[in-house]
Design a binder for these strands. Structure first.
Lengths: 259, 259
DNA sequence: ATTGTTCCGTGCGAACTCGCACAGAAACAA
DNA sequence: TTGTTTCTGTGCGAGTTCGCACGGAACAAT
């Protein structure tokens, strides 16, 4: 399968550009569907919405490049964005964060900088809204909004810490299960449209390893995989398989942002 | 060696309480020595210093417990504090962040919350200053200070992300080398006073694995290990060994906070 | 229908780490 | 000094993942 290891081609943004199954859950033109936007302080809502622009998020789209200034932050309403930590040479990479409708890309803007050493791409196509960084900075004069975003930064960093934990202590099967759970949370669908190749890049392992591990999950009836698609059958079973390495960041998110 | 695996006893705060070799580099009673405190906005400096309390940081001291409200944040001037991500049951843990005189513990206060699911302990004894969380919150009304702390949060989260990268992609030798480098940065000394046991907990591996890996580093003349002490001989050699997996968080820190 | 591409299944030896277990060495306490 | 504890060095079989490599299956386009 050629250059399978890093799957660079499969990440190419130009592929599949108009094939992404658009989520039809857009409720009006509101920011609804994204949980950060859904709770904008009332006095800001109108202004905020005026500067939000609905966008398509095709699979493979590169949202941020390491070290490059970002222009927009994205609030997904569907699909999954992933934050990938990498060496400057790009010879090693690993997923450090997952973003879905519960969050935003470009969260470092809330921390006062407009670039980071990570790469951010759309893992699973979807849609959302974006806002110019300069606008967001103006909005953040509102302390309630700023704090909401900071809470999200905290939850995201807990997620990253537990990814470090999972990478160090879990076997591939369990890491895969954890990844599927996190994805499931964000998609609101039992179908995860990804190839083994993509997963292998996220988990930093061989593609063949993902294949084998998926078979293990299938053997226990937890998922059902077909070409380019993984269907989640038994969420509770997956959670059991991951043990305590799933759930902590999710609980932290709930504690701070569900209010 | 008994209960070596998690080394719980060795973490006990009651042991070695007065044996920590105090750093004598305290320059007056100022916050000097801690790089976050060193650059307090001028208009805040006096007020800030009034609420800082010098403290000893003995090895093993538990600074934060998962889920528990914190009362103080700590600005080390020497020694190393480590942030450990763990499962709720505590059956798996890994170091997710290292804090030295470049930073602070309890950085989540800057993000608007006063607890986290991580455990924070003193890895290498030293000293520093602490401030009540309530005070810090008042101080953060000053936007310049708040932004400085947020920048630090960003750098810390990049560090965590690269720890996830290292855990997934590096061999034990290289992970150990990376850890020693990060420690060296914070200690300002070539001597790292830690046992293999401690290191094995931080890296999430067997104690015996650390012993073997240290021998490899020694074999290349990079370090020299004696009982309870690792002396760093060839920093550049260590960096070479780690490759691109060291340096990115450090560069990010420098970009944002060295000004 | 044919061809080209992407994706998935499988096999095998090598490398790394694990879990367990024990012995020697160094520090410490009495 | 003696006894105890902590720390380090070593060995071995088992389990996991790697790197490589090939064949077959599903899909797309002509």
């Amino acid at each position: 399968m050629g250059l399978s290891c890093w799957g660079r081609e499969t990440h190419d943004a130009t592929r599949r550009l108009k094939k992404v199954p658009m989520k039809v859950e857009e409720k009006g033109t509101r920011g609804e569907g994204n949980q950060l936007l859904a709770r904008i302080p009332a006095d800001l809502a109108d202004l905020m919405l005026a500067h939000l622009e609905p966008v398509d998020l095709p699979q493979g789209l590169v949202i941020e490049q390491p070290g490059e200034l970002i222009e927009y932050v994205y609030f997904p309403t569907g699909g999954v964005i992933s934050i990938v930590a990498m060496t400057p040479e790009g010879d090693a990479q690993i997923e450090a964060g997952l973003v879905g409708r519960e969050g935003m890309s470009g969260s470092m803007v809330a921390l006062g900088t407009d670039r980071s050493p990570h790469q951010t791409t759309v893992q699973i196509g979807g849609s959302g809204h974006r806002m110019a960084v300069s606008r967001l900075r103006e909005m953040m004069d509102n302390e309630a909004l700023h704090e909401r975003l900071l809470h999200y930064c905290h939850a995201l960093s807990v997620q990253t810490a537990h990814t470090a934990l999972a990478n160090a202590k879990l076997k591939l099967d369990a890491r895969l299960a954890r990844w599927l759970l996190m994805c499931h949370d964000r998609l609101g669908s039992d179908e995860v449209p990804l190839t083994h190749d993509f997963l292998s890049v996220m988990l930093g392992v061989r593609r063949a390893g993902v294949t084998v591990s998926l078979h293990i999950l299938e053997g226990q009836g937890l998922v059902r995989a077909t070409r380019g698609l993984i269907r989640i059958n038994d969420r509770a079973g997956l959670e059991r398989m991951v043990g305590g390495c799933y759930g902590v960041p999710e609980a932290e998110y709930a504690r701070l942002l569900a209010e």
